[in-house]
Design a protein around this nucleic acid. Structure first.
Length: 422
RNA sequence: GGAGAGAUGGCCGAGUGGAUGAAGGCGCACGCCUGGAAAGCGUGUGAACGGGAAACCGUUUCGCGAGUUCGAAUCUCGCUCUCUCCGCCA
């Protein structure tokens, strides 16, 4: 959510930001309504002042044993007027709020301006896609041939885009989760959190999934609970409504969770394998920073996510998303893309974003130093990493000529000493 | 699921419908005292919104939402959450 004062005082900045994102939202109805709100507010506050002053006077008179019938009559009328104005104001504020919640964040000045993913800019590349001299099998074939992934039974038991992991496959998924968590906890200084997988609508509003993206999520029928699409939601909302002690910042959390996505509008894309599932595992990194620190922390966080692939020795690249490809809440996003032989291309495995105060304003997360006024924190997050996609990348990038898969060194101890699959 | 108790400022904790943004305490900040510290003493200490260059002024805020009233932390109703006991369960 943007600062209403920014919109009021500097609508040009917001219009320009919207244009960069390819949105043609008209701000004028909003600005007119906001003007109306302030006019009515001034009137009703004056009436309330009158009521407060006179009511106090009535109290004084009664205590002294005097009558005040005419004043009481007047105040009855004033209270009636206040009530009507308050009702009108509440409607206006609800409308303003609804509008405000649908305006995307303003992109940072360093973000490349562009229409879509075509305009993303590669900023870093690590390792080179191997040319193994044999035909690398896609991970879904590897998974089925060694009976470690079972897509058909996943469909039978649940439906499309659900998968069973079995044997060494299940263990590999678990090994990757533990390896990632340990790396971030011990080497990067994150504090681990294991969050709820269902959250209420207020939390979804706080991080920006609601109100615009309800169709992307699973809702638990008959309740106010949603299955989380990412641990970002519960972990960012961990401090919602709180005023944090400034000396505690930067706060860094990492969290493993299952993630649930309806994948509305993704029909026909990535239909095979582990790439696009309704339920998948992810290790998430979340930071709460002072405003002046967030861009430095954004670089750090993105680096921490990359470390996973560096240590596993899997090729990847980092791209800075253009204004047209960025998510609704983000001010700047780097995607980390892992080399995926089955696609003969790089495939997104992490998305690291700085939201500045956009989420903090929605979720009301502030900090304070001593006697200063509270300020909104900046929130950041990134996958560190998507676990299913990492497993897929291992099954393909670490494939040997005989079709077996060599377990990357750092994972061997998490696999109980197992060095290869197949 | 049943029965009961509760929700007040950063924390604890008072609060007969009018003088209470809210006693008292803790914490915190500043000052005095001290060679320095502790103790002691004094002063100050929430947030949001609106107006104002500022000083400051106004409005709102005692879990949330309705209601009664000239006036609600205080009375009524609904909801949420927390705690205790019983049942069930991992």
């Amino acid at each position: 959510m943007l600062d209403i004062k920014l919109l009021r005082g500097n609508p040009g900045v917001v219009r320009e930001a919207l244009n960069k994102r390819g949105s043609d939202l008209d701000l004028n109805p909003f600005l007119n309504l906001e003007e109306k709100r302030r006019e009515k507010l001034a009137v009703v506050e004056q009436l309330k002042n009158r009521r407060n002053v006179v009511s106090e006077e009535i109290g004084r008179l009664k205590r002294e044993g005097n009558e005040a019938a005419d004043m009481v009559a007047e105040m009855r009328q004033v209270s009636q007027n206040i009530k009507e104005l308050d009702d009108e104001l509440r409607d206006i504020e609800a409308e303003l709020q609804g509008f405000l919640l649908t305006i995307p964040n303003v992109p940072h000045e360093t973000v490349p301006v562009g229409r879509d993913a075509q305009d993303n800019v590669e900023v870093y590349r690590h390792g080179e896609p191997g040319s193994p001299g044999f035909a690398v099998k896609p991970h879904w074939e590897v998974g089925e041939s060694f009976d470690i992934l079972d897509f058909e039974r996943g469909s039978k038991v649940s439906g499309a885009r659900f998968t069973f992991y079995k044997g060494a496959g299940a263990r590999l998924e678990r090994a990757v989760i533990n390896f990632m968590l340990d790396l971030h906890i011990t080497e990067h200084g994150y504090v681990e959190v294991l969050p709820p997988y269902m959250v209420n609508s207020g939390s979804m509003l706080g991080t920006g999934q609601l109100p615009k993206f309800a169709e992307d999520m699973f809702k638990v029928e008959g309740t106010d609970y949603y299955l989380i699409p990412t641990a970002e939601v519960p972990v960012t909302n961990l401090y919602s409504g709180e005023i944090l002690d400034g000396s505690r910042l930067t706060i860094s959390h990492c969290a493993y969770s299952a993630c649930f996505r309806a994948e509305a509008g993704a029909a026909g894309r990535d239909t095979r394998g582990l790439i696009r599932q309704h339920q998948f595992n992810k290790v998430e990194l979340v930071k709460f920073t002072r405003p002046e620190d967030s861009y430095e922390e954004h670089e750090k966080l993105t680096w921490h996510a990359q470390r996973v692939l560096q240590v596993l020795e899997i090729p990847y690249r980092v791209v800075c998303l253009s204004t047209g490809d960025m998510g609704f809440s983000s001010a700047k996003t780097y995607d980390i893309e892992v080399w995926m032989p089955s696609y003969n291309d790089y495939k997104e495995i992490s998305s690291c974003s700085n939201f500045e105060d956009f989420q903090a304003r929605r979720a009301n997360i502030r900090f304070k130093d001593g006697k200063e006024k509270p300020r909104f924190v900046h929130t950041l997050n990134g996958s560190g990493l998507a676990v299913g996609r990492t497993v897929a990348a291992i099954l393909e990038n670490c494939q040997q000529e005989d079709g077996s898969v060599k377990i990357p060194g750092p994972l061997v101890r998490y696999m109980g000493g197992m060095e290869k699959i197949g």
